[in-house]
């Protein structure tokens, strides 16, 4: 089942927060070198999928394979060492440490040569390298979180809503950087987003999550063309033409 080009494969995972099921049976595959996106509204279970892959949450069922190796239920620090970097939601930085210390913590063997690579992507971080990360602006903190993930020389980077709370211009910049990292560093990318427009432009393949289930998956071109995605995720209205009320229209997958 696992082909040689498959980097990450998630099979039918179910994850619970106490008695509440957040993810009930999600499967997805990230091919070597691909950018894959997971779209969905609030509470669809996107973040939980990432946390389960990263080892921060235990799945009740299902398996996660990385490079053919079963990594289900392994400690998070070992998963990072295998080459999966996780850029968490809401730019989690170490606020009292300096920018450079934050980056140094990212590198696994204290390889400081990686710093130059990061500074090349984000020159602004070099400018503020002595500044406490808590004083950086939101966009800079997001860059720092991405830079910290780059320090790990990962095979796969998982982004959790990198566009959250950023200006349209910064969203554009971040999406360009994600593409650059993908091609230049030959890193595969799993991008979780609410900003469907940006995500569908950047990625090649997409999954749509709703209430903990994958309701649709396809190439991003086809997804962008689908009427459901257009209406519910890209906010283009067509329904009015036929006089249908939006709240009466049912999604095809329900």
């Amino acid at each position: 089942m696992l082909e040689s080009s498959t980097l990450l494969s998630v099979q039918n995972i179910e994850t619970y927060y106490g008695p509440v099921s957040a993810v009930c049976g999600v499967s997805l595959v990230v091919e070597q070198g691909a950018i894959v996106t997971v779209l969905g509204a609030n509470g669809a279970g996107k973040t939980t999928v990432l946390k389960t892959i990263a080892g921060l949450m235990f799945p009740a069922k299902g398996m996660v394979h990385f490079e053919g190796e079963n990594i289900t239920g392994i400690e998070p620090d070992k998963i990072v060492r295998l080459g999966i970097a996780h850029v968490p939601e809401g730019r989690e930085v170490f606020p009292l440490l300096s920018t450079e210390e934050n980056l140094r913590l990212g590198s696994l063997n204290n390889q400081l040569s990686r710093l130059d690579v990061v500074y090349e992507y984000f020159p602004i971080l070099q400018k503020h390298r002595k500044l406490s990360a808590g004083f950086l602006s939101g966009g800079q903190q997001q860059m720092l979180a991405i830079g910290r993930a780059l320090m790990q020389t990962p095979r796969l980077i998982m982004f959790d809503e990198p566009s959250l709370g950023l200006s349209p211009k910064l969203v554009h910049e971040i999406s360009e950087i994600i593409t650059r990292i993908n091609t230049e560093q030959s890193v595969s990318i799993l991008l979780v987003e609410q900003n469907a427009k940006m995500a569908l432009q950047v990625a090649q393949y997409g999954y749509i999550l709703e209430q903990g289930r994958v309701v649709m998956e396809n190439t991003c071109e086809r997804l962008s063309a689908s009427t459901d995605v257009k209406e519910f995720y890209l906010g283009m209205k067509e329904a009015g033409v036929r006089g249908q009320r939006r709240w009466k229209r049912r999604k095809t997958w329900r």
């Binding site: 990263a54 921060l56 400690e75 998070p76 620090d77 998963i79 990072v80 060492r81 996780h86 850029v87 968490p88 989690e92 930085v93 170490f94 606020p95 009292l96 440490l97 913590l105 990212g106 696994l108 910290r148 993930a149 790990q152």
Partner: peptide, 17 residues
């Protein structure tokens, strides 16, 4: 220091918390 400032981020960067 990292663990005390942000335990979640510490997990994310692969620190054996």
């Amino acid at each position: 220091q990292a663990v005390s400032q942000n335990q979640f981020a510490a997990y994310c960067v692969g620190i054996p918390v």
